[in-house]
Amino acid sequence: MTKKTWLITGVSSGFGHALTTQLLEKGDTVIGTVRNFAKIQDLIEQYPDTFISEKLDVTDVPAIHTLVNKVASEHKIDVLVNNAGYGLFGAAEELSDEQVDKIIATDLTGSIQMIRSILPYMRQQNSGRIIQISSYGGQVAYPGNSMYHAAKFGIEGFCEAVAQEVAQFNIGLTIVEPGGARTEFRYGSAKVADPIPAYDGPTHAFMKMLDPANGLAPGDPKRMASRIIESADQTPAPLHMVLGSEALKNTIERLETRVAEYKSETELAASTDFPVDEK
Rank of each mutant, 00 (worst) to 15 (best):
L255F: 05
V259W: 07
R116I: 02
S231R: 11
Q164T: 02
K70F: 10
S117E: 05
M147S: 04
R182L: 07
V242N: 00
D60K: 07
Q22P: 09
S127V: 03
F51S: 00
V68P: 01
I77Q: 06
M241I: 05
T5S: 01
I44M: 01
R254H: 07
A84E: 00
L88C: 03
T33C: 03
T9K: 05
I196L: 15
K222I: 14
L108C: 05
G180R: 09
T174R: 09
V192P: 06
R129A: 01
R129G: 02
L67E: 10
F89N: 11
L173T: 02
R129I: 08
S135L: 08
V162R: 04
Q22I: 06
Q99E: 14
V259R: 14
V30A: 08
A38L: 10
N145E: 08
L173M: 15
P120A: 11
A91K: 12
Q234H: 09
M122H: 07
N170F: 11
Y187R: 14
G32N: 11
A193R: 13
E98W: 04
K208Q: 14
A105L: 02
V61L: 08
I52D: 00
M241L: 15
P120I: 10
S189C: 01
T21I: 00
L210S: 07
G90D: 05
F89Y: 15
A150Y: 00
F206N: 11
G14E: 05
E184R: 11
T5K: 05
E267N: 11
D200P: 09
A161H: 06
T50D: 04
D97R: 13
E156R: 14
I52S: 00
I131N: 03
V34G: 03
T257V: 00
K3A: 03
Y187C: 06
Q168S: 13
I130C: 06
N82M: 09
L80R: 14
A269W: 11
G188D: 08
E177N: 12
H149K: 07
A161N: 15
A141S: 10
N145P: 00
S127W: 08
M241V: 02
T2Y: 02
A190C: 12
S231G: 04
Q132I: 11
Y262R: 14
A205R: 14
A18V: 03
L95A: 13
V79E: 10
L88H: 09
T33S: 15
G144S: 12
K4M: 12
G90Q: 07
L19T: 08
E54V: 03
I133H: 07
F169Y: 12
D233C: 12
N214R: 09
S13N: 12
F169D: 08
K76W: 02
V166K: 05
Q132H: 03
P48N: 05
E230F: 06
S245W: 02
G137Y: 02
T109Q: 05
T272W: 08
I8W: 11
I171A: 04
F274P: 02
G87E: 04
D233E: 15
T59W: 01
A105S: 12
M122L: 06
T257G: 09
K39V: 04
G188S: 05
E253R: 10
G138F: 00
K3P: 01
P62I: 09
I104A: 01
K3N: 08
